[in-house]
């Protein structure tokens, strides 16, 4: 016998996504999903973000890594609630893991949850975890061809951060080529060129984020 269907294979993940979205909506919490390569500066971006945001808003962080708690340890000094996930080889996060972290949080006392996904440009782009926005982080030493090579992430992103721009003079990175490729994939996405450790351009990113958090609370 043949059983005809049209059923979502990721139905289990999508069910948890609905629960996550509902929980966030109840407490008017904004949730961001930061995705980028290993070494692109996701944790440095979080450090710069927490330095600029944690006095104004109540931020909670979910840190995901395949192994080690090093990223979480780097963020401890900010004194914000920090939830660490070791995926143990899994290349992305799924919604059930996020829901489990959210359930440990005091969401009523949280304005924004920022998730640092596993360092990977492909897998995390494919799994909805109930976030309001995916943030793609790319960095100068990786080369200017990342949008073309990993188009789905850059297409799905609500904002793109190009990090380590202070290194442009020392590399063959072509900012114009990066931007042209990105615009072909995502013509309307905000692009923030910055140096998370040097501070250049960070304010524009923070301003965008502040606006997002305020809009979610309205």
């Amino acid at each position: 016998m043949i059983i005809e269907l049209r059923q979502d294979i990721l139905v289990a993940n999508q069910k948890m996504v609905s629960v996550v979205k509902e929980r966030l909506a109840q407490e008017k919490v904004l949730m961001l999903n930061i995705i980028g390569s290993p070494g692109s500066g996701k944790t440095s971006l979080l450090e710069a973000t927490l330095a600029g945001l944690s006095e104004r808003f109540r931020v909670a962080i979910i840190e995901a890594d395949v192994e080690t708690k090093r990223d979480s340890e780097r963020l401890e000094r900010f004194g914000v609630p920090l939830y660490h996930i070791n995926t143990g080889g899994m290349c992305h996060l799924e919604s059930d893991i996020i829901l489990a972290s959210l359930e440990k949080m005091d969401l009523a006392a949280t304005d924004v949850v920022i998730i640092e996904n596993v360092g990977n440009l492909i897998c995390p782009a494919d799994f909805d975890i109930g976030e309001h926005a995916k943030i793609a982080v790319s960095s100068v030493p990786e080369g200017d061809d990342k949008p073309s090579k990993y188009p789905v992430l850059f297409r799905e992103a609500a904002a793109v951060v190009l990090n380590k721009t202070d290194l442009v003079p020392y590399t063959n990175f072509n900012v114009e080529s990066f931007t042209t490729d990105l615009r072909r994939i995502n013509g309307t996405v905000p692009l923030f060129e910055l140096s998370a450790t040097g501070g250049n351009g960070v304010q524009a990113w923070l301003d965008w984020l502040i606006q997002k958090v305020e809009a979610s609370q309205a």
Partner: peptide, 30 residues
């Protein structure tokens, strides 16, 4: 992966298909 309108050249486009991940049939014995 060129998300630019072929008719007007506009870059403000919405993806309306291509995110499917479906099981469409199973053939088996009962």
């Amino acid at each position: 992966h060129e998300y630019v309108c072929g008719s007007c050249g506009g870059a403000d486009v919405k993806v309306t298909g291509g995110k499917e991940i479906l099981i469409t049939s199973i053939e088996g014995d009962r």
